[in-house]
Nucleic acid binder design. Structure first.
Length: 442
RNA sequence: GACCCUAUCGUCCAGUGGCCUAGGACACCGCCCUUUCACGGCGGCGACACGGGUUCGAAUCCCGUUAGGGUCGCCA
């Protein structure tokens, strides 16, 4: 399927990719893919104080992490560049000349202003529908500045010029630009170019409904990258914010979303970012991760938490990680869940101590130690049999032994399957840890 | 303040005049499964912002109010 659809994602290099920007990029990407069109990436760095190179890199990294590639732009090439506004000076100059020739600009204290036509501006937004703005009053809509006295350009002007030059057919952007659109439409008309289609997507709000700004928790994509989230899960969650496959499904693969995505069906309502749901969805994906990728991400998460895996045999690490699969939702939870495999001097959970390290349990734990010590083969099946035999020999429930034992060897009340975890730990470590716990009883 | 957008469970989404005593998901609570946790299963809690219309009939259409968000820069 070929088409003339050309969309663009045009972020300002702020040093990180905002979660709202990420979704705008995602929707642009989806629309391009759905229509067989092209996605252009353009860096809007007209503000000279911004450190473009590094800040732009953060944007590429974020987009690539999400799996969003662009057809034209930095590091991708294209015939309609350059794709940094800071490198398009002569183009802007020529467009300014056109406006000047048409007598649509004038100087004001050294800056250049664009003279609006005093009229009603109407346009049809793909998402928001028919929009009317009354621009007849210079009081409420004063002529806008398009170039500063120092020669630098203002967003509205360069944005429109670039969209014209890059032959953008559909401008898909955040709803915060809806009120700016009539100004842009006026610019198109003054330049004698038909405006593109506009589609303003709703904004992402904080969980409490307030506006999500730079400093808010979760505003930066980095939060998810560093927090041990999977890109496919975050991408899936973002798809569901303001758009729906309509059949109550939550987990959708990318190819299917591309097929179903319909820009016109995107909501008009702002949505709150629900980290809990995003985390749940992540857990769904983690559970289905291939063993290799799970192992790789697991090692990364543990290393990041300060654990030196080099001190352990690869087989030990692999087996340890294996017992944790499917038990947690985001990788940042892994160190707390399975860190005991790599630390002998861990603290014992206080609630657990109060509940299980009571005097009456000391003989029980001793009996378990004795049973385990007598084992020749230290595998899950033998351990389970030994523990159950110990329990029935004393006419107590298995749980009465399981809980103190788990606490003794892991320091926690929750964790991987006890018998498997004991097997991975090995006889030596298990007996040592049991002794260490026993010493706590005084 | 002016203008623009929006308004279904706490959150995300389904619902486009009768199928709605409003459905699903996350979260929360209970039960079951179970060596813990998680998963899974079952059940519960929980919403059409308010007021007027239109219509035989309104969550769905219209108007108003209220609330939230956005824009009004020589930021993007």
């Amino acid at each position: 399927m070929s088409s003339n659809t050309r969309v663009r994602f045009a972020p300002s290099p702020t040093g990180y990719l905002h979660i709202g920007g990420a979704r705008t990029a995602l929707f642009n990407w989806l629309h391009a893919k759905h229509t067989g069109g092209v996605l252009v990436l353009r860096i809007e760095d007209t503000d000279r104080s911004r450190n473009t190179a590094e800040a732009a890199q953060a944007i590429y990294d974020g987009l690539r992490w999400l799996g969003l590639d662009w057809d034209e732009g930095p590091e991708a090439g294209g015939d309609l560049g350059p794709y940094f506004q800071s490198e398009r000076e002569t183009i802007y100059q020529s467009y300014l000349d056109r406006l000047r020739a048409a007598d649509r600009v004038y100087d004001d204290n050294g800056s250049v202003r664009f003279r609006f036509t005093r009229e009603k501006v109407v346009f049809d937004d793909v998402i928001c529908g028919h929009i009317e703005f009354d621009m007849t009053s210079a009081e409420t809509n004063p002529d806008m500045t398009i170039r500063r006295p120092d020669g630098s350009w203002i967003f509205h002007f360069v944005n429109v010029v670039d969209d014209i030059e890059m032959k953008i057919s559909d401008v898909i952007r955040g709803e915060d630009h809806l009120s700016n659109t009539p100004k842009h439409v006026q610019l198109y008309r003054a330049l004698g170019v038909p405006p593109p289609r506009f589609a303003h997507i709703p904004l992402i709000l904080n969980r409490d409904g307030s506006k999500m700004s730079k400093r808010d928790q979760g505003a930066s994509l980095n939060t998810y990258i560093e927090g041990g989230y999977l890109p496919e899960a975050v991408r899936n969650y973002l798809c569901l914010l303001g758009w729906s496959p309509k059949d109550n499904r939550e987990k959708l693969d990318l190819a299917e979303v591309v097929q179903l995505f319909d820009l016109a069906k995107v909501h008009r309502k702002n949505a709150a970012f629900d980290l809990d749901k995003c985390t749940w969805l992540n857990g769904e994906y983690v559970r289905e991760l291939s063993d290799d990728r799970f192992q790789e991400m697991g090692r990364q998460a543990l290393t990041k938490a300060g654990i030196d895996l080099g001190k352990f045999l690869p087989d030990y690490v692999r087996a340890a990680l294996e017992t944790c699969k499917g038990k947690f939702r985001i990788f940042s939870e892994l160190p707390a869940y399975g860190g005991f495999y790599f630390k002998d001097d861990f603290e014992f959970n206080a609630d657990g101590v109060a509940k299980h390290f009571v005097p009456a349990n000391k003989p029980l734990l001793l009996a378990v130690r004795e049973a385990f010590a007598a084992l020749d083969t230290f595998d899950a099946a033998s351990l389970e049999a030994a523990l159950k035999a110990t329990a029935s020999g004393r006419a107590i429930k298995v749980g009465a032994l399981v809980h103190p034992t788990r606490l003794a060897v892991t320091g926690s009340n929750a964790g991987p399957s006890l018998y498997h975890l004991l097997e991975v730990l090995g006889k030596e470590k298990v007996l040592a840890r049991l002794d260490r716990a026993l010493s706590r009883f005084g």
